[in-house]
């Protein structure tokens, strides 16, 4: 009998409210190794909120989150070792240069050859000329590239990104898409929020559209999934996240609304 695959990331009944406003309502999500789940939706749909819950930057009002079978605790060293995160709360040391930031991360994670890894990633993100610059002098695009580099310069099993295409130029988005595809093919699990169609189309194996929509209604055809709909690139159409009608569709790999 084939061993059942355990999800790298699993959420159950995840709910988050701000006062009377429910942003996320009973979100169930499973992400396996080699999968890339894209969160899409309008502004305010709850994409960033969901990501913040997943990385422990915020606490859900209900529900559980598990990473590799262990409950998600933001302070857990094991989870920090496995989860690489690039969301909006990344900070930089004002007095450490670009390469020193990456060197610190690589060594903190115990890489055998941190110098080689850092050099390689610096070349990839095209920040070699800025190696000796302090973060305060970088452009917003360069800071974004540095932030992305922090995810690739250390070991990871799960990658969580919030709108990683922000501030990147066209070439940068292209590079990012290729890199994430390669990571996924190597068995990394990826969850990312994005407004960039090319990135979503290229990288995602599943798309979760958050915000609005009523489960069960027929939706007009379009280029992408409509609110309330999850589109899987492996022809698995499943239910979507939160909705306003009180219905609680679930998202699972097996497909079909429940």
């Amino acid at each position: 009998m084939a061993k059942k695959r355990e999800p790298v990331l699993k959420t159950s009944g995840l709910t988050r409210k701000f006062g009377d406003f429910t942003v996320l309502d009973q979100v169930n999500l499973e992400v396996f190794a080699g999968e890339a789940v894209a969160l899409t939706g309008r502004n305010g749909a709850g994409k960033s909120t969901l990501l913040r819950l997943l990385v422990g930057a915020d606490q859900p009002d209900e529900g559980t989150i598990e990473v590799n079978g262990s409950p998600m605790f933001e302070t857990s060293a094991k989870i920090r070792r496995d989860m690489a995160v690039v969301i909006d709360d990344l900070d930089f040391f004002p007095d450490l240069s670009v390469v020193e930031h990456l060197d610190l991360l690589a060594r903190a994670h115990g890489l055998a050859d941190p110098d080689a890894v850092v050099d390689e990633v610096l070349h990839e993100v095209q920040l070699v000329p800025q190696s000796g610059q302090l973060p305060g002098t970088l452009s917003s695009g360069q800071r974004r590239r540095l932030a992305l580099a922090t995810a690739f310069v250390r070991p990871r099993k799960l990658l969580i990104l919030d709108e990683p295409e922000q501030r990147l130029d066209v070439d940068g988005v292209g590079w990012l898409a290729e890199r994430l595809v390669a990571e996924r093919q190597q068995g990394l699990a990826i969850v990312f929020a994005s407004h960039e169609p090319h990135l979503v189309e290229t990288v995602a194996t599943r798309i979760v559209n958050l915000g609005g929509g009523v489960g069960g209604e027929s939706t007009p055809t379009g280029d992408g999934p409509q609110p309330g709909q999850v589109q899987s690139k492996n022809v698995q159409k499943t239910g979507a996240g939160q909705n306003k009608s009180g219905q609680k569709p679930r998202i699972s790999k097996k497909g079909g609304r429940r």
Binding site: P94, D95, S97, V99, E100, D103, L104, R107, A108, G110, L111, P114, D115, S131, G132, Q133, L134, G136, T137
Partner: peptide
């Protein structure tokens, strides 16, 4: 702090030693 180091702009890179917490 931010202003001070933004004015400084560039530094001579110093590669650290050690792994883990030591770094």
């Amino acid at each position: 702090n931010e202003r001070r180091f933004t004015e400084m702009g560039n530094v001579r890179v110093k590669t650290a030693a050690g792994v883990g917490l030591t770094t």
